[in-house]
Amino acid sequence: MADLSAFPITGRWPAAHPDRIQLYSLNTPNGVKASIMLEETGLPYEPHLVDITDNQSHTPEFLSLNPNGKIPAIIDPDGPGGRPMALFESGAILIYLSDKTGRFVPADPALRYETIQWVFFQNAGIGPMFGQVGYFNKFAGRAIEDKRPLQRYVDEAKRLLGVLDARLDGRAWIMGADYSIADISTLGWVRNLITFYEARDLVAFDDLRHVPAWLERGLARPAVQRGLEIPRRG
C-alpha cells in the first residue's frame, strides 16, 4: 500500500484509498477539468472536497501541496518511477494524466503540441476573461456603477468565443475528429459562462455558429456529466 504520510495535506484530508490518485478540488470550471479527465480515463481516484468558499485552499495543509492556494491539485501514488507525485495547475494535471494513460492527446508530436497550445489558450485567455465577466456581471463587481470594466471583459469574452468558433468550423472537436484535453479544458468554462455567470445574452452565445453544438456534444458525454459533479458541496 502506498505511503502518502509525507504529504501534510493527507493529515487534513485523509486518504481512505492511498493507492488511488488523490484529487483535491471543487466542481468549479477549473476543478472539473481534473475530475472529467479522471472519469474519462477510468483511472482509480479518490476525490476530496476543498471548499474554496470557506478558504480551505489557503490552509497550511493545502498550501503545502499548492503554494498558490488554488484547486485542483492531485497526488499520484504511482508517479514517474513508481514514486508519489504531487501536482497542481489544471492544465499541467491534464497533460500529466494524458501522458500517464496515452489518451486524449495525439501521438504525433506536432499534433500533441497543437493540442497543448489550445489548452494554454483556455488557461491564459478563456478562464481569466470569462471569470472577470462573472465577477462584474454576477458577483461583487455588479455593484460598480461604472460599467466599462464589465463591457471590456464582455468584449474580450466575445472575441475569444469567436476564435473558438472559427477553430470549430468543420471540426467536431477542437482538434478535429478526436476529443482531447483541449476540449476537456474548455467545456466547463464555456458552460459556466452561459449558465452560472448568466452571460448567455451578454456574449451573444446563440449567434455563434459552432460553439453551441460543440458544447452540447461535450456535455452529452457520460464522463463529462459525472465529472461536472465531482467533488460537489453538499
Rank of each mutant, 00 (worst) to 15 (best):
G69E: 12
W173H: 07
L187V: 15
L38T: 11
I21L: 11
L215W: 14
T186Q: 06
V32C: 05
F88R: 04
L23E: 02
G102Y: 15
V224D: 01
I144S: 03
R83L: 03
I93E: 00
V119M: 04
E39Y: 06
L160D: 08
G227Y: 15
F136E: 01
Y135P: 01
F136S: 02
G176I: 10
S5Q: 12
L97M: 06
F104P: 02
Q132Y: 14
M129D: 00
I174R: 02
W214Y: 13
D51T: 13
I181C: 11
S35H: 01
W13A: 01
I21A: 06
L65T: 08
G11K: 15
W189A: 04
A177D: 15
I230L: 09
N68M: 11
Y24Q: 03
T195R: 07
P212V: 15
T53R: 14
G127E: 03
R12C: 09
V105G: 10
F121N: 09
P77H: 02
D3C: 06
L38A: 12
R226V: 07
V119T: 09
E156V: 03
R200S: 04
A157Y: 05
P106S: 14
P67H: 13
H17F: 03
K138H: 12
G141V: 02
I184F: 07
A92D: 11
V50R: 07
D165N: 12
P72Y: 06
N192F: 05
K33Q: 00
A166V: 07
I194P: 01
E46K: 05
G162K: 08
G188N: 00
A34M: 09
K33R: 14
L4S: 01
P18H: 02
G134K: 00
D51H: 10
N123S: 14
A172Q: 09
E46R: 02
A107T: 13
R233A: 03
F196E: 05
G176T: 12
W118F: 13
T10I: 05
I126Y: 05
Q117M: 15
I21R: 01
I184P: 00
F88M: 07
V119P: 06
A110I: 09
L202V: 11
G176L: 08
P8G: 04
A86I: 07
L38F: 11
V203S: 13
A166W: 00
I9N: 01
Q22D: 03
Q132G: 10
P47F: 07
D76K: 06
M85L: 14
R20F: 15
F120T: 15
T101R: 04
R103K: 15
I52V: 11
G234Q: 09
G31Q: 03
D169W: 00
R221A: 15
G11I: 05
T28H: 04
L160S: 04
E39N: 07
H48S: 04
V203I: 11
G81M: 13
V190C: 10
R20V: 03
M1C: 03
L219W: 07
Y113H: 12
K70T: 05
G79V: 10
I74R: 01
E40G: 10
R142E: 10
A199H: 02
R226P: 02
A177G: 13
Y197F: 09
V154K: 01
G102K: 11
L219M: 13
T101W: 02
W13L: 00
P212K: 13
E145P: 04
S64P: 03
F88C: 10
P67Q: 15
F88E: 00
T186I: 06
S35F: 05
E198H: 14
Y197C: 06
R148V: 07
S35C: 05
L87A: 13
